[in-house]
Amino acid sequence: MAQNLTESSHDRQNILNNRYALQQAEQRMEPGGTFYDGELVFTKQQVMTLFEIGDATIERYLASHDDELKSNGYQVLRGIKLKEFKDLAFGTLINEGTKTSVLGIFSFRAVLNLGMLLTESEPARILRSHLLDIVLDVMAEKSGGHTKYINQRDENFLLASFQEDNYRQLFTDALDNYVEGNKWKYGNFTNLIYQSIFKENATEYKKILKLAKKDKIRETMYSEVLTLIASFESGIAHEFEASSKRKGGKLTQREAKELISGFESHPLFKPLITDARTKMASRDLCFRDALHEKLEAYIQAVPEADFEKFLGEKSRSLEEQLSDPETLAVFKRLKDR
Rank of each mutant, 00 (worst) to 15 (best):
A89S: 14
G91W: 03
T98V: 05
T92R: 11
L88H: 02
S101E: 03
I94D: 09
D87R: 04
A89R: 03
F90D: 13
V111H: 12
I80A: 09
S101G: 03
K83H: 04
I105W: 11
N95E: 05
V111F: 05
D87M: 10
E96Q: 08
K81W: 02
F106C: 06
R109S: 15
I94A: 10
F108S: 03
K83W: 05
F106I: 12
F85E: 13
A110W: 04
L93P: 15
L82C: 10
L112W: 10
T100M: 07
R109N: 13
F106M: 14
K86L: 06
L103Y: 10
K99T: 08
G97W: 07
G104N: 14
I80V: 03
N95V: 02
E84K: 04
V111S: 01
F90A: 12
R109Y: 09
L88C: 05
D87F: 01
E84I: 00
K99Y: 08
G104D: 07
K81V: 00
V111A: 14
T92D: 09
K99A: 12
L112N: 13
T100K: 11
T98N: 07
F106P: 05
L93E: 12
K99P: 05
S101A: 01
G91P: 11
K86N: 04
E96H: 08
T92S: 08
F85L: 10
G104A: 13
T100Y: 07
I94C: 01
V102R: 03
N95H: 11
E84W: 00
L82H: 08
L93Y: 13
E84Y: 00
T100W: 09
I94S: 03
K86H: 05
L112K: 13
E84G: 01
S101P: 01
L112C: 15
A89I: 06
K99E: 09
T92C: 04
L103G: 07
T98R: 09
A110Y: 07
K81N: 14
D87V: 06
A110I: 13
I94G: 07
S107R: 07
I80K: 09
L112G: 11
E84N: 06
G91M: 04
T100E: 13
K83I: 01
G91K: 05
G104S: 05
F106D: 14
K83S: 12
I80D: 14
F108M: 13
I105S: 09
L82A: 10
G91I: 02
K86V: 05
T92P: 13
S101K: 09
F85G: 10
G91Y: 02
G91H: 12
I80F: 04
I94P: 01
V102G: 00
A89W: 00
G104I: 11
K86D: 06
G104W: 10
G91S: 04
S107M: 02
A89Q: 03
T100S: 14
N95M: 09
L82V: 11
L82P: 15
E96L: 01
F108Y: 15
R109P: 15
L103R: 02
G104P: 14
L103P: 15
K83R: 10
E96K: 04
G97Q: 06
D87I: 01
